[in-house]
C-alpha cells in the first residue's frame, strides 16, 4: 500500500460515499469483541487500496458483549452497523447484511479474518469471468489450511462427502465463511433462504444450483482462528437435520420463486432469476 492508498483509507473512514458502491463487504458478528476490530482494520485497508467505492456492513447477531459498542465507537463513515435485538443465527445476520448492501458485488467474510481479505481479488476474478457465486474453498486443490483442529478436519470431510453425495453441489467446501455474489444473485438467494443457523451456506449453494446460477470455488488460505464458536460434534447433528430440511423444503415448494423471505421487503434488487442469456453473456 502506498501513501496514496493510506490517504484513500482515511478518506473512506471520514467521508460518506457519494456514489453507489462497487463492492459491499458483509461481516456477521456475534460476540466478536476480541476479534472484530483488527478484522475491520485489515479489510478496510485492503479494500480502500483497490480504488473502487465500497461499503462495509457489520451485521450484529444479538451480541451480548461489547461488539456493538466497539464497532459503533469507530465512527467510520462507510461502515453500516446493523444491530439485532436477539441472536438469530449467522444466516440471519448475513441475510440482513446482504439486504442492506448496495454494491454490485457482495462478499461476506467471517469476523475472525480466518480467510485473509487479500484473497478478495481471486474471487473477484471469477465474477469477472461470468460466475454469479464464487466460494472460498479450503478443500479445493491449491488451498492452504493452517492450524485446523483434527475434529474440524474430520467434520469437514464428513460434510463434504455428505453434501456431494446428496446434493451434488459443484463445490468441495460449502462452509467457508468467504463467499462472493453478484448483487442479483445475492438478493435472489437470500430472499429464499429459510435456514438461519450453521447450514445456511449449504442452503444458499443448493438454491444457486436449483436456480441455475453459475457457481464455482476458489482455493483459499485459511487460518483456524482461536476462539472459534464451531462445536463440531453439535453442529454435525444440526447439519444432518438441515440437509433433510432442505430436501423437505424443496419438495414442499418453499423455495418457489414467488416466495420471499419477509426480511427482503423493500430490498432494492428484485430477486429474480437471471436469464440464461444474461448469464452466458456475463
Amino acid at each position: 500500500m502506498t501513501e496514496t492508498d493510506l490517504a484513500a483509507y482515511r478518506h473512506w473512514a471520514t467521508t460518506p460515499l457519494q456514489t453507489k458502491p462497487t463492492y459491499s463487504v458483509v461481516i456477521p458478528a456475534y460476540n466478536e469483541e476480541w476479534r472484530i476490530i483488527p478484522t475491520i482494520g485489515a479489510i478496510a485497508t485492503h479494500m480502500c487500496a483497490l480504488g473502487e467505492p465500497w461499503e462495509m456492513i457489520v451485521a450484529d447477531d444479538g451480541s451480548t458483549d461489547s461488539t456493538v459498542e466497539l464497532v459503533a465507537d469507530l465512527g467510520l463513515a462507510n461502515l453500516n452497523l446493523l444491530v439485532a435485538d436477539a441472536n438469530g443465527g449467522k444466516g440471519s445476520a448475513v441475510r440482513r447484511g446482504i439486504f442492506e448492501s448496495s454494491g454490485e458485488i457482495v462478499l461476506f467474510a467471517d469476523a475472525d479474518q480466518s480467510t485473509p481479505i487479500e484473497q478478495f481479488g481471486d474471487l473477484l476474478a471469477k465474477i469477472d469471468e461470468g460466475y454469479d457465486v464464487v466460494v472460498g474453498s479450503r478443500a479445493a486443490v491449491g488451498a492452504d489450511v493452517a492450524s485446523k483442529s483434527l475434529s474440524r478436519t474430520i467434520f469437514s470431510y464428513g460434510l463434504k462427502t455428505l453434501v456431494q453425495t446428496l446434493f451434488r453441489i459443484p463445490v468441495s467446501d460449502t462452509q467457508c465463511g468467504f463467499k462472493m455474489f453478484t448483487a442479483d444473485a445475492a438478493m435472489l438467494l437470500f430472499s429464499r433462504q429459510v435456514i438461519d443457523e450453521f447450514s445456511f451456506d449449504l442452503e444458499i449453494l443448493f438454491l444457486a444450483k436449483k436456480f441455475g446460477l453459475r457457481t464455482t470455488e476458489v482455493p483459499v488460505t485459511w487460518i483456524d482462528a482461536p476462539g472459534s464458536k464451531v462445536d463440531a460434534a453439535k453442529v454435525a447433528v444440526e447439519f444432518v437435520k438441515d440437509l433433510i430440511a432442505i430436501r423437505r423444503n424443496d419438495l414442499a415448494g418453499v423455495y418457489a420463486t414467488d416466495n420471499h423471505h419477509p426480511d427482503s421487503a423493500g430490498v432494492k434488487a428484485g430477486g429474480s432469476i437471471p436469464s440464461q442469456t444474461n448469464r452466458q453473456a456475463a
Binding site: D5, L6, Y9, I37, I40, G41, A42, T45
Partner: peptide
C-alpha cells in the same frame, strides 16, 4: 505496514 497502522489506530 498500512494494515497494522490502521489496526493500531482503530484500537
Amino acid at each position: 505496514s498500512d494494515p497494522v497502522r490502521v489496526i493500531l489506530e482503530l484500537t
